[in-house]
């Protein structure tokens, strides 16, 4: 293990703040505390995590809460700004400077891009970005990598496609950055309107080759990992166009007939109909395991940032 790892009190604003070695280290810690995710621990007893969720969330919020409780810590916070002083017009800068007096770490979800970076500049306690508008969702990327690693035993050498709304889906932005640190073959499959953002492509193309496609069928037989995101109706000015695109990007048993037997299908959830329910019972489906892995990875992060686990 290299000696430059320093997770203590670190902000997690963007996945871009991590080196590959650091990500590997987090995934290794996650693997090493799998048993704690079952039995629980008191390694963070007396520590308080504050959840500031300015946007609705189910999975991420509950996942962080579960992670903190499993480590023996406590959780405070709000799940919607309407019930907090934010409703009275308090700024984010003031909110974090007050909440840090009550807590050891802040987990923030906010509709504006760059909000986590801004909050981290004001807060003395570490800030974890739990989704900043359509920009990033770094802890989701880490749990996605962990799910791939657990299912495949490796990340290097895999043939991976990201499919769906690559423009507004924050999880795929963070995941694409993270994957570009590995030696993977990465494909982006989306309707023209929802192509991956140019700034993300620009960053990751400096490290790995990325090919964009308009439909999945051509590349599906070679894939090891298919990561699906929801295509939102409101992104389309023309509903007819949406209906057309929706069918093209749906995953069902018929489509998966041409897939490798060990293909894994991931999705950050919630899904609507982009993955048919009939896929759930197949070995392809790993999206509910992602949710479980999210708890373990967030436990690893909290333990590292709050100093309960030290890596040198």
């Amino acid at each position: 293990m290299k000696s430059e790892f320093n997770f203590l009190n670190r902000d997690i604003v963007s996945i871009k703040g991590f080196s590959r070695e650091e990500i590997d280290c987090i995934l290794e810690v996650a693997r090493s505390i799998e048993h704690i995710a079952e039995k629980g621990s008191d390694m963070l007893r007396g520590k308080v995590l504050a959840e500031l969720f300015f946007e609705p969330s189910t999975r991420t919020m509950l996942s962080f809460q579960t992670a903190m409780y499993k480590l023996g810590g406590n959780v405070i916070g709000f799940a919607e700004p309407g019930v907090s002083s934010v409703w009275k017009g308090e700024t984010l800068a003031d909110t974090v400077r007050v909440v840090e007096k009550y807590s050891d770490i802040i987990v923030l979800r906010h509709p504006l891009e760059g909000s986590a970076r801004f909050a981290a500049e004001y807060a003395q306690v570490p800030v974890i970005n739990a989704g900043s508008g359509a920009e990033e969702h770094p802890t989701q990327a880490l749990l996605d990598l962990y799910t791939i690693l657990k299912a495949k035993g490796r990340i290097d050498g895999l043939d991976i496609a990201l499919m769906g709304d690559l423009r507004y889906g924050r999880t795929v932005h963070s995941l694409a950055y993270a994957l570009s640190l590995y030696n993977v073959k990465l494909s982006m499959v989306s309707p023209g309107l929802l192509r991956m953002r140019s700034e993300v492509l620009r960053d990751i193309r400096s490290r790995i080759d990325v090919i964009e496609y308009r439909d999945i069928e051509e590349i599906l037989p070679e894939l090891d990992v298919l990561y699906v995101t929801r295509i939102q109706k409101e992104r389309f000015p023309d509903l007819g166009e949406y209906e057309k695109v929706r069918g093209t990007f749906a995953v069902n048993l018929k489509l998966l007939r041409s897939a490798k037997n060990d293909l894994i299908v991931l999705h950050p959830l919630p899904r609507l109909d982009e993955i048919a329910v009939e896929v759930d019972a197949t070995p392809f489906a790993k999206y509910f395991e992602q949710a479980r892995n999210g708890v373990v990875v967030r436990m690893a992060l909290l333990a590292l940032i709050l100093g309960a686990i030290k890596k040198q």
Partner: peptide, 14 residues
């Protein structure tokens, strides 16, 4: 130019 960027929130000290 992105309206959804926090730097365009005029209420914040940014």
């Amino acid at each position: 130019i992105k309206p959804s960027c926090i730097s365009n929130d005029s209420s914040e000290p940014i």
